[in-house]
Design a protein around this nucleic acid. Sequence first.
RNA 1: GCGCCCGUAGCUCAGCUGGAUAGAGCAUCGGCCUUCUAAGCCGAAUGUCGCAGGUUCGAAUCCUGCCGGGCGCGCCA
Length: 585
Amino acid sequence: MNVFSAFKVIVESEIESLVTDGTLPVGTDGARVSVDPPRDASHGDLATNAAMVLAKPAGLKPRDLAESLAERLRAQDSVESVDVAGPGFINLRLSDEFWQKLLVEILVAGEAYGESDMGQGRPVNVEYVSANPTGPLHVGHARGAVVGDVLASLLAKAGFAVTREYYINDAGSQVDVLARSAYLRYREALGDDIGEIPEGLYPGDYLVPVGKALAERDGSKWQDLDEAEWLPEFRAFSVAAMMDLIRDDLGVLNIRHDEFSSERALVEAGGVDAVMQTLEAAGLIYEGVLEPPKGKLPDDWEERPQTLFRASDFGDDTDRPLKKSDGSWTYFASDLAYHQDKYRRGFSTLIDVWGADHGGYVKRVGAGVKALTGGEAEIDVKLCQMVRLLEDGEPAKMSKRSGNFVTLRDLADAVGKDVIRFIMLTRKNDAPLDFDLVKVREQSRDNPVFYVQYAHARTHSVARMAAEAFPDADFGIEALQNADLTRLTDSDELALIRLLAAWPRTVEGAAEAHEPHRLAFYLYDLAAAWAWICGKARGEPGLRFVVADDVDVTRARMALVLAVRAVVASGLSVMGVTPVDELRE
RNA sequence: GCGCCCGUAGCUCAGCUGGAUAGAGCAUCGGCCUUCUAAGCCGAAUGUCGCAGGUUCGAAUCCUGCCGGGCGCGCCA
């Protein structure tokens, strides 16, 4: 249960009552009413702006209306007190008993705590990575991969029916380059001296096994043929090989897509023709001449009529070409077809995760989606900014085994999957991210991966101590649900429960905003609150979780400890990070 | 020239879709190891939220215009 949305329902029903008894006019619109945690915990547990939002249209003074509403809210069971403050905030304080009982709910839910039916099973398509199938993934791809994957898990947790999708750009000229590069490696495997890899082809040694495999399978059958004869076969074979490579790379991060959509297959199935018909019928295509691009004018710019899509009717800056001069479709044309295809497969919420260098493309695709779906579908493009690899503050000098970039695999070998997954979420996607290979291995408070893992490990450590102190007691989840939770009376214990109770709200808010990084920040805050409680008992031994002569208070506190563990585990599981039970050198 | 993103403490960044006295970490200064991990905890200090207008009961948040930084602009993908 999300405490805040639960109380919003209560506030709304009390507003209804005020309409019924004539305090508020009929037709009062509660859309802007919200129930939030107050900024300052001393104000209470929940705050609502209802009176401030509703007073003006009703011709009332905010504080008067707040008093009327407060009076009604005081009658609620779990409400301890209600205050009206400032310009008309209504602050609610809930009873200790309410929070103590909430712990049971967390223990029962376990790792599933925070799941929500907000999405009501609505389908969402999250497309991420979609790197060109021309080589291994690099560090930049890793960020998009994690952001997309965790966003997908987050949406699933919030009750959406999520499809994780990878768009394979296997129709452009870059895959012809790939095929030619592979052909060279094929000849090399047959014993030809290929010398230096020519400019314009892919030099990476990851194509060596591809050439070798083709030589083993087909022998010299392609060796003396013209390019036109071998190109299609080499293209198909090497794209498949690259996709295997990419899937392996993603597997290192434990990322798996549900759908791999091939651009080539889409084009061959007539997807682009279909989308052109749709646009043609809607009168959104015309032959015209575009202004030359501003800034640096390309060397080979020539003004000529083109087939254009009226993107500017849908919020784009200019209309966009659909055909190249050789008559083939532009990338944009097949991308339109692809997004229409997603819509036709039943998705009206589309999320694309791209690198920031594609930023100039967002409006264009947005315009296309609007035009093709009559505004029925929404697309949200998450742009991921650069990842800067550092070593102790200096630009990293990692080995670069495959071409001139650091691969995802190099990074995973250096720091591991869990560190990559966590660190990639320690910034919002549209801010650049510094990834410090030294810092992420430090065991200190300014390394969030460690700090959160340490919190989880420490709950296990406490449980071991409790078991040692009371060998006959049962501190299992089920037994703890029946613990006497009224023994949890310390203000910091109750504050910790309140923070745990904010987890479902965090999940829903992050899912709504498509912002997976919020999970990492919440977990860090939770780890800090937990560390505080652990440290506090050092000064006040009576507050220890394990109290040697009092099994009942120990049991109550173990319920709190296991609830902390459940929420940390819940969060890490959405992030795809494996929680550790122990953390020692 | 145009578009997108960013600008918050000395540094790196959060800020819950417009709420109350703007928060963390690092760095600085000070305190805490006879028992649940000192790999840690606590306290102190630190701000014209880039600037100027506007909308609002209320703006770091929304709008407009500037300033500064990043990314991008083409029949590439």
